[in-house]
Amino acid sequence: MKYIQKCKEPSSFTEWKNRRTNKTTLWTKIKQAVKSNLHETLLHEQGYICCYCGASLKGNESHIEHFKPKSLYTTLTFEYMNLMISCQGEDEEKPRVPVHCGHKKNNWYEEDLLVSPLISNCADFFKYPASGEILPTDDLDKNLAAKETIEKLALNISKLQDMRRLAIDAALLATDGLTEAEIQLLAQGYEQLDANGQYTPFCAAISYFFKNYF
C-alpha cells in the first residue's frame, strides 16, 4: 500500500457541490463531466496506481472509491478526503472477477481494522516476500489491522500475488552489478513519481523487497 497525499479538489467538483439545491443528492446524480474531471484528478494524485493493491490504473479500468462507504456515511458522499481511485472499473453491480480491492471491500469499514492509504505509515503494516504475497507486519500494534485489510480486500489472491511477483522479478533485473548502497538508492527511487507523474506498479512491494532482502 502506498501513502496518498491528498491535494486540492478540482474546482469543477467544488462548484458543482456548491450549486446543489438538494444537499442529499445521490452520487449517481453527479454530472458526467464533473465526475470525469474528478476521476482524472484522483488518478493523478495517486500516481496512477490503485489505492489498495498498487496495480497500474487507467481510466476505464478503475472507479472512484469511497473509503468510508457512502451507504453508511452519507454525509461523506461528496467529501474529497473520502475519495480515492481503486481498480476493476465501474461495474459495481457485477464487478470483474476475481473481485478484490474496492469492490471486494464493498460496504465494510472498521476504523481500527482497515488500513488507510491516507495515513503516512500505511506501508509499515505489510511485508512482501519474493513470492508476491502480501503479509501482515510482525509489529503487534499493526498486525491485526493488516490481517483484516488483506482478508477483507482480497489482497492475497493468486492474481495479485502473480502480478506482484512479476513486478519484483522485473525490478530485480535492474540490480545486476549494483552495490548494496546503489540498490538501496534504487529502492528509494521506486517510492518517487517518474517523469510522467506515475508510480511503478506495485512500487511498495518492490521498495520493501529491496530494503529488506539486500
Results as ranks from 00 to 15, higher is better:
residue 141 D to S: 11
residue 148 E to G: 11
residue 144 L to H: 11
residue 134 I to V: 06
residue 150 I to D: 08
residue 159 K to H: 07
residue 163 M to A: 15
residue 160 L to F: 04
residue 127 K to C: 11
residue 161 Q to L: 03
residue 161 Q to E: 08
residue 150 I to G: 06
residue 140 L to F: 07
residue 133 E to V: 02
residue 150 I to F: 05
residue 127 K to W: 11
residue 154 A to F: 03
residue 148 E to Y: 13
residue 132 G to Y: 05
residue 160 L to N: 06
residue 126 F to I: 06
residue 156 N to C: 01
residue 135 L to K: 11
residue 135 L to E: 15
residue 138 D to E: 09
residue 140 L to T: 14
residue 162 D to I: 14
residue 149 T to G: 05
residue 138 D to Q: 02
residue 161 Q to K: 14
residue 139 D to L: 06
residue 160 L to P: 10
residue 162 D to P: 08
residue 132 G to A: 12
residue 136 P to N: 06
residue 159 K to T: 14
residue 163 M to C: 12
residue 141 D to E: 14
residue 142 K to R: 14
residue 135 L to Q: 09
residue 142 K to P: 05
residue 141 D to A: 15
residue 139 D to T: 11
residue 147 K to Y: 04
residue 160 L to Q: 06
residue 142 K to A: 09
residue 146 A to C: 02
residue 143 N to C: 12
residue 130 A to S: 13
residue 131 S to H: 06
residue 142 K to D: 11
residue 157 I to N: 15
residue 141 D to C: 10
residue 161 Q to N: 12
residue 135 L to H: 05
residue 133 E to D: 13
residue 160 L to I: 07
residue 130 A to T: 08
residue 150 I to K: 08
residue 129 P to V: 09
residue 147 K to R: 15
residue 150 I to M: 05
residue 154 A to D: 14
residue 131 S to T: 15
residue 145 A to G: 00
residue 163 M to R: 10
residue 151 E to M: 01
residue 149 T to M: 03
residue 147 K to M: 03
residue 148 E to V: 15
residue 133 E to W: 06
residue 151 E to F: 11
residue 152 K to F: 01
residue 146 A to T: 06
residue 132 G to Q: 06
residue 136 P to Y: 04
residue 139 D to R: 08
residue 131 S to A: 05
